[in-house]
Design a protein around this nucleic acid. Structure first.
Length: 302
DNA sequence: AAGGATCACAACCGCTTTTGC
DNA sequence: AGCAAAAGCGGTTGTGATCCT
């Protein structure tokens, strides 16, 4: 036996709401509120509608704080960023956009934004110059020590790394790696704290996040000091040197195709050719203590 | 001008989660 | 703790508007 229906389907009106019905619902809610029970509301208000339908009409259309009209570029960008991070959790995404409903955001994504994004006409976390967020060496180290690993806060503001512009695949050839490094360690980015990061991998943790990172086309900084922390895979593939105690940092781009690309941001060496082959094969089967998925980390200034 | 195709968005459906008893 | 009802949520559908041939 299934659950009882929420209303008598035969006796409720369906389809678009008339202005009269809107007014009736609005007036009733203005006077009485929901009374904590949407199911009973239509009967009390004198509407031949399902309670769920009333609730939806109010939440998605009649509420006074609803923002009608087109989405701004800034809203586009927020939606793209959050969609990349959390997928189709429309209510969570809409909660970051004042006046927008989950239904609005979902419809907008499905009908316009997705296409706009595919056509490359919108700034996205994967191809723009404003959304790449990176951690400094200190933050990365804190992160490894499990400091500041709280869930993302809605009140925090993302800090962007301006140098990582355009398509990440182009930056090694088009931009100065020295400049990238300089910006990574500029005062602007040195005193950041991790406000939340939900995709960190740990070599002691068998549940690798690498796969998830791969599918989200994230950017990450692989960071270690000296050879002692090198993983076997890294040694085998020449990413680092056991006898070299200097900082080793690689900027890593995991594209949608799942093929990681490495950039040696310390030595200004594009090591893509050197490591991308076999190393990319091993990446899905191992985890890195030095790994931080910036795509999913939210950082803010102190 | 007509009609088919596509778009945009409101509304519905049904599953999951939360709440109250 | 367990159950039922209500609320929340995301996927899907329906329909009017607009575009294109």
């Amino acid at each position: 036996m299934g659950r009882a229906p929420c209303c008598d389907k035969a006796n409720v009106k369906r389809g678009p709401w008339s202005p009269d019905e809107d007014a009736t619902l609005k007036n009733y809610l203005h006077t009485h509120g929901t009374g904590g029970n949407w199911i009973a509301l239509p009967r009390k208000a004198g509407l031949r509608r399902c309670g769920k339908s009333c609730r939806l009409r109010w939440l998605n259309y009649l509420r006074p704080d609803i923002k009608h009209g087109g989405f701004t570029e800034q809203e586009d960008q927020i939606i793209c960023t959050l969609y990349t991070q959390m997928g189709s959790r429309w209510s969570a995404i809409a909660s970051q956009l004042p006046g927008r409903t989950d239904n609005d955001v979902k419809n907008y994504w499905n009908t316009k934004l997705k296409k706009k994004l595919m056509a490359g006409k919108v700034i996205s976390p994967n191809n723009n110059n404003n959304n790449k967020t990176l951690l400094t060496t200190q933050q990365n180290s804190d992160f490894q020590d499990n400091k500041n690993c709280s869930p993302p806060s809605s009140s925090s503001s993302l800090v962007h790394l301006p140098i990582l512009s355009n398509d990440i695949n182009n930056f090694s050839s088009n931009l100065s790696l020295d400049l990238i490094h300089q910006q990574l360690y500029s005062p602007q980015f040195m005193n950041l704290e991790i406000d939340g990061a939900n995709s960190r991998s740990n070599k002691n943790n068998n549940s690798s996040n690498i796969e998830g990172s791969t599918s989200s086309s994230s950017l990450a900084l692989l960071d270690y000091k000296g050879g002692s922390s090198l993983l076997e895979e890294e040694k085998q593939h020449g990413v680092g040197d056991d006898n070299d105690e200097s900082n080793k940092e690689f900027l890593m781009d995991l594209g949608f195709d799942g093929v990681p690309t490495y950039y040696d941001i310390v030595n200004g060496l594009n090591c893509h050719e050197r490591v991308v082959g076999e190393f990319s094969q091993s990446i899905s089967s191992c985890c890195y203590s030095e790994w931080v998925d910036f795509n999913c980390a939210e950082i803010k200034p102190h």
